[in-house]
Amino acid sequence: MTDVDLAVVDRIVDGTTAVLLLEADETVVDEYTLECARLPEDGRHEGAVFDVELADADDALGELRYRPELEEQRKETAQERFDRLSDRLPDE
């Protein structure tokens, strides 16, 4: 697997299983499913961002460190992008 920088909670299924998108250089490179209980409590929601380390040669997911400030920054960037796209072009 490519070196992974971040993991982002894409969705939570049935309140018990989290689907993480693994990113390298701001590109999704893989998907990983795990029990929500393995996530830090304050990061058990969609859109939560984590620093991630792979635990071993089998690419098992190791330690996850919740990054609320990075999550907020990503939300703001996405909102700014949406706002720019939603601006109407001037009439010509």
Rank of each mutant, 00 (worst) to 15 (best):
L70Q: 14
L70V: 13
G62D: 07
T33M: 12
V28I: 15
V13M: 08
A55Y: 09
D14C: 07
T27W: 12
E26I: 07
A60D: 12
V29H: 11
E35C: 03
D59Q: 11
D91A: 04
E76A: 12
V49M: 01
D14L: 13
K75D: 01
Q73Y: 11
G62E: 05
L70P: 12
E53R: 15
L20R: 11
G62V: 09
D58K: 13
D51S: 14
P90C: 04
L6T: 12
D58F: 12
G62C: 08
C36H: 00
M1N: 04
E80K: 14
R88D: 13
A24V: 10
V28E: 15
V4A: 08
A24H: 15
P40E: 03
V9S: 02
T2D: 11
V4P: 08
D83F: 09
R74L: 14
D5W: 09
R74A: 13
E23A: 14
E41M: 05
D51Y: 11
L21S: 07
E80N: 14
L21H: 10
D91C: 02
T17W: 10
E46M: 02
A37H: 01
G15R: 04
D58V: 05
T77K: 15
E31D: 04
F82I: 14
V52F: 06
L34Y: 01
G43Y: 02
L64C: 04
L6K: 15
L85P: 00
L39V: 01
D58C: 02
A55S: 10
L21F: 04
L54G: 03
L89W: 04
D87I: 06
F82N: 06
E31H: 06
R67A: 09
L34S: 02
V19E: 05
C36Y: 02
R88N: 08
L64M: 10
V4Y: 13
E41G: 02
